Simulated assay, not measured.
Amino acid sequence: MGLLGNFAILAFVSVVIKYACDTFEQSAVYLGRNMSEGVKGGLINAVGSSLPEMLTTFSLLFFLHDEAGFAAGISVTVGSAVFNAIVIPLACILAVRFYGVRGKSVTSFTISKTALKRDGFWLLFGEGVLIFMLIKFELFHWWMGLALIVVYLGYLVHMLKSGSHDGEDDYEFESLESSNILTALITFDFNKVLFSDKPLSKFSAWVNLFCATVIIAISCHFLSISVVGIADGLNIPVYLSALVFAAAATSVPDTFLSIKDAVKGQYDDAVSNAFGSNTFDITVALGLPLLVYGLIYGTVPMPEGTDIAALRVLLVVITLAVLLMFYIPKKVTGYTASGLAVLFAIWVGFLIWASQMGGFTL
């Protein structure tokens, strides 16, 4: 299959993942209806929208079956994390400014500093643990994947202690609005196909969740194949292809989900989804595939060179910059959007330079 064919697969599976994640999110919102704002965004929404990163990492690691697969998996989480940290908040600011909240343009809004500190701490802590492993060890052992998952469990406990409330009265079932059964099949609206679009119950929510996960898993397998094919076609390292193309494709659900929260006025959920997704990517989306791989096949060689460790350090710098943009000002404004746009332009310029160099080191 040629380069254009692989790009066509990439575009197709991106659309499939987006629709499957819509169904996943519909059920996840129902199951997390009793959680407070911020907690729901950072936990339920973040986990749901981060499934593509985890399943793509699984596929790349087991498909390539070597350190190249490890490097590609790390690159997916890095690229997605940068996209989440910069593009998603930027898209949310532009959405409420030009589309509006309930029909009214919003030029500035506030977010919870407490939630920002919580999400920022665990994100940076997870990054620090992973960077330490990459620098300190020559082989990745199964227990390192477990250690990353334990970091997420700490975040999970902190999230749940942040508070929940009986929000079931505030929950309102939202149909995916498929016009007919054929459209529902094409867009993976399982609630319409299987349950005639009736309001969700625990049973139907879990069934829909499972079906959506299967579709996402299959899509991510083909996504990993296209990433390898694009790398071969462009004659660049697989990790660089994953950093750009797989990361963008797997971040589509996070973006749409955060924008939907933002235009509803749920700003804490919109921002927490971005940072919570990153924490999940760094710990579980990377740690679980490596844990399973390590238990089955043994150790995984660390990627050669300093490129991958450099990527993680660069991500920490970007994360700190974004956190400061949100934490220091009292409100999120157009100036915040401008700062994010500049940061993203620097990132894109860096990627263009890296692709021309065939890699990079710091």
Rank of each mutant, 00 (worst) to 15 (best):
Q26W: 14
L51Q: 08
F24L: 15
G5V: 10
R33Y: 13
G41W: 00
V15G: 11
G48F: 05
N45P: 13
V47Y: 08
V47S: 04
I44D: 03
S36P: 07
V13S: 02
A8N: 12
L10T: 02
N34G: 11
F24Q: 04
I9L: 12
S50W: 04
L10C: 04
G48E: 02
V15H: 12
D22T: 12
R33S: 05
V29P: 07
L43D: 01
E25D: 13
R33D: 03
A11S: 10
K18A: 15
S27T: 05
L51F: 09
A28R: 01
V16P: 00
S49T: 14
Y19P: 03
L10P: 01
V47E: 03
G32S: 10
Y30I: 04
R33H: 12
N34K: 11
S27M: 04
K18W: 15
V13Q: 00
Q26P: 08
I9Q: 02
A46H: 03
S50F: 06
L51V: 13
Y30G: 02
V13E: 00
I44M: 15
L31E: 04
T23V: 09
V16I: 13
V16N: 02
S49E: 05
S50M: 10
G41A: 09
G42V: 09
A20Y: 00
L43M: 11
N6M: 08
S50N: 11
A20D: 02
E37W: 09
F24W: 09
N45F: 15
R33Q: 07
S50R: 06
S50C: 12
N6R: 10
K40Q: 14
L43C: 10
E25P: 05
N45M: 15
A20N: 05
E25R: 10
S27I: 01
V39I: 13
G42A: 12
S14I: 06
N45Y: 15
D22P: 12
V15E: 08
A28V: 12
L31P: 02
T23L: 13
F7Y: 10
L43S: 05
I9T: 06
T23N: 11
M35K: 08
F7S: 03
R33L: 06
S36Y: 07
G48T: 03
N6K: 13
T23G: 13
Q26V: 09
Y30D: 00
N45R: 14
A11L: 10
L31A: 11
K40M: 12
Y19K: 06
D22Q: 14
F24P: 01
G5K: 13
P52Y: 01
L43R: 01
I17H: 04
A28I: 14
E37G: 11
Y30L: 02
G38I: 00
G32P: 01
V13P: 00
S49I: 07
S14D: 05
A46T: 05
M35Y: 14
F24N: 04
